[in-house]
Write a protein that binds this DNA or RNA. Sequence first.
DNA 1: CTGTTAGCGCTTTCAG
DNA 2: CTGAAAGCGCTAACAG
Lengths: 348, 348
Amino acid sequence: MVFLIDHLTVKKTRTTITDIADQLGISPATVSRSLHDHPAISKKTKKAVVRLARKLNYQPNQLALNLLQKKTNTIGVIVPEITSYFFSSIINGIQDLVNPLEVNMIIGQSNESYKEEKKIIQSFMSINVDGFLISPSSKTRRFDHLNAIRESNIPLVIFDRDCEGIEADKVFVDEYNGAFQAVEHLIKSGCKRIAHIAGPNTLSTSRHRQMAYEDALTKHGIKIHADYIVNCKGFAPKHGISPTRHLLALDKRPDAIFAINDGVAIGAMFVIKEAGIKIPQDISIIGFDDDPHSCYFKPSLSTVWQPTYELGMLSARLLMKRINSKASDPKFRVETLFPELIVRGSSL
Amino acid sequence: MVFLIDHLTVKKTRTTITDIADQLGISPATVSRSLHDHPAISKKTKKAVVRLARKLNYQPNQLALNLLQKKTNTIGVIVPEITSYFFSSIINGIQDLVNPLEVNMIIGQSNESYKEEKKIIQSFMSINVDGFLISPSSKTRRFDHLNAIRESNIPLVIFDRDCEGIEADKVFVDEYNGAFQAVEHLIKSGCKRIAHIAGPNTLSTSRHRQMAYEDALTKHGIKIHADYIVNCKGFAPKHGISPTRHLLALDKRPDAIFAINDGVAIGAMFVIKEAGIKIPQDISIIGFDDDPHSCYFKPSLSTVWQPTYELGMLSARLLMKRINSKASDPKFRVETLFPELIVRGSSL
DNA sequence: CTGTTAGCGCTTTCAG
DNA sequence: CTGAAAGCGCTAACAG
């Protein structure tokens, strides 16, 4: 009778290794070994343990393991934001690499704020993530928070946006190459007055694209006009509006615009069409990122595709490698992936 | 000398409560109490402890606490996918509620697969998440995995997409209301042959929108034509292409389309414009979700806005409430938020 | 006011 | 081949 009641009530708590040991009249250590294919264990006991474990639906308690191994099998991913296709597809890549490894991922959004970024890092460190995957915010100029990670010997991979001066594994896209292709394409299609809507120049990505823009013009003997370079305050369509208005109001209106990304390019196209100007006859447009919406506009938007998913995968792969190698190899890897020009209707 | 070496090498491991205790010649328990404003502790020792703790940069070890309290301060969020604005902005809402509470969030993507969903749930249960926030996949018809959560007494909140038959706190948007507004708007603007590109009818959201579509037509004395209801296989622009082609090929071509969401509506607009048909003069279009791209198309897309951010916040709030109340109150709450019609250029 | 003890669930020496 | 014991870092009951 007592047994029966016991059986019914005790069940509240998950079965542990000790439960199994008790029921089998053996020690927890033996159970542990049986469950881990330890060589020195008799077939018989092992079988019994495995059977009972299955019957009782035994699940190892991760929390105990975490404490024991000082490991959480969790990595922290920090991105500026999650609502853009660019970063969310990078996250997909990370997740797909990390999931089969039974590693979890927690995501933090800096919202392009240094303070937020720092807070997230502290929070993630306090819960003992095994490693960090970070694409820094556009406002991040001080790197004390990243150095704190390095000093704690927590593996760190920086992706997409560079932090010069921080030693870490890094994975980038060759922005320069992509932007150069884009601008050269505009030049070859006959455009003479090519404008650039540039991103915040705290970002390595923005700087590299602008550099490529300038270099491409120079290479083809086109003078760089400061008037034709305007900055935008963000990466959404709305951020393309006023820079474009500004460009259209110029004395010598540009005949092409290379926008920092598709979001901004979409805003630009909107303004241009509104003004009754024809794309691409009067103005060609090209963006960056290949947002999934871009090919459904009229005209469809020319752009530079980036291997976002692969970027996520590769970054995660480097991180996992770092986590699983005990030796603190001082050699950091810097990997570069290649973008691809996609010509559509918004350019000739 | 030995000290020096010690000082340099020992530092590898984070300072613990015992380190502090040792250095102060007191017991770990006293240190613990000092750090937690325990009433029965002398000001003096407390001060000394706090001072040393700060000096040594003591950080409590979450892993030990987790094991002790059988709690992780982590919630599991499962969504069909993360790349759509709809779900990513819900996630924003969740995160903004949960962060100030020092609770972390891990995200799983089911990719609209029941199997994936189940796997994620098991994985999250094995790492002892404190609660679940789930929007089920469109393929989910069996609820054994959700029941497993309930049986383990882990708090669960279902949001956006309903699972009839599962008892849990739930947060929805009044889809019926939003869809009804949309269709009625089309009717009032003079459309007579209103088509619907419907979503998978395993989804409560799709069903409610279709129901509202049919009811609105009926209310205004318009007969429902099976021909005018076509299904799409997903929610991206590309999934709107073939359903729209089908509708355009009909004998009596519709003069309006109510699409299951903005993504599909964008695909529909593309096909229609390609066919040289005028929007909204010949065909009106309305979507659902208010994707941030929608207002930049020409014409801009009419739609039904959903309070996604609030949906995330509210869901998370319910979950945290559930987690923090020990009593297993059997009363489940079902909350409903309201959508809003946004009329733009794609309808009259 | 403070120390001792036990224990969260598990693995891993060290002894048999 | 198996058991006993220690310990990961912390808290909480029980004693003083």
